[in-house]
Design a protein around this nucleic acid. Sequence first.
DNA 1: GCAGAACGCTTGCATATGCAAGCAATACGC
DNA 2: GCGTATTGCTTGCATATGCAAGCGTTCTGC
Lengths: 151, 151
Amino acid sequence: MAAMTQIDTINALRLMQSADELRARLSGAFAAVHGLSVNEYFLLKQLNHAPGNRLPRVELAKRMHVSASTITRMVAPMEKIGLVDRETGARDARLALVVLTKAGAGKLKDAEATFAMHAGYIFEDRWTQSEREQFSELLNRLVAGTPASLT
Amino acid sequence: MAAMTQIDTINALRLMQSADELRARLSGAFAAVHGLSVNEYFLLKQLNHAPGNRLPRVELAKRMHVSASTITRMVAPMEKIGLVDRETGARDARLALVVLTKAGAGKLKDAEATFAMHAGYIFEDRWTQSEREQFSELLNRLVAGTPASLT
DNA sequence: GCAGAACGCTTGCATATGCAAGCAATACGC
DNA sequence: GCGTATTGCTTGCATATGCAAGCGTTCTGC
């Protein structure tokens, strides 16, 4: 048990450090190439993954681990440049759905290519194909079932 | 090759989402129990891991993937409450070393327990011991050799 | 049905962070 | 050695984000 705690601690550390490094790389690339922040990319991706390409703000907040006010403020400029639209909930007038537009889907597609490229850089020459699959399976158990999961 | 890019993309996504979730959990726990932010915890941990328990600000910035000004502003209150000290570089007067104090080391030790606890929660009942070791080995190849690595 | 609780969204304020400019110290080219 | 470039740190300004309060809508207990 003590041994498991020890390795869990190391794994959690390495997990966070790897993610931090990847985020730092992506941050620069997205800003330069697409004028997007990493969080804006994830927001578009959540919408694209959702049924009907739309989600209430509160649901976006939960999935992205940010506050509702952050969503309000992130969405405003994205709406202004046409990446998303606003739509009032049909059954519940409290809901202000964020809807992915054609333009937003196009921007997302471009950004996916950048993401894939940098993901490739990170893992390149470090793992075999079989190890990549092991890693995928292990991580899947951490994120599967959560509403935030994009895969 | 296309298949490898595909799985790399999925792995990068899951990596970032797992880390985000862990960070969100830790953020609340550290704030409530120790009055620390996650980044302050990592700063203390970097100092503790460094030879002589001290590092120049610029080195902390690189390892933590933040700007130098962020380090300046993070360190100020930590110095005020005695977690760290300031020391001018002996051979290079430009350097303003951040030094871990006894109090800082004590606080870090408390925080490590909280970290370990939540790391345990995250992985609990999801992976076998052997899978934990595989995961550790795979992640190690991502972070090993980087100055930021704490393990 | 109605009153109060709960929910979804927005906004004011406080904090956190990056970038660029500025300052002091060191390194480099000659 | 000297002048210039580089480096390390700090600070002003702009942006990003969380929390709490406020407002409108829906749900719940009765």
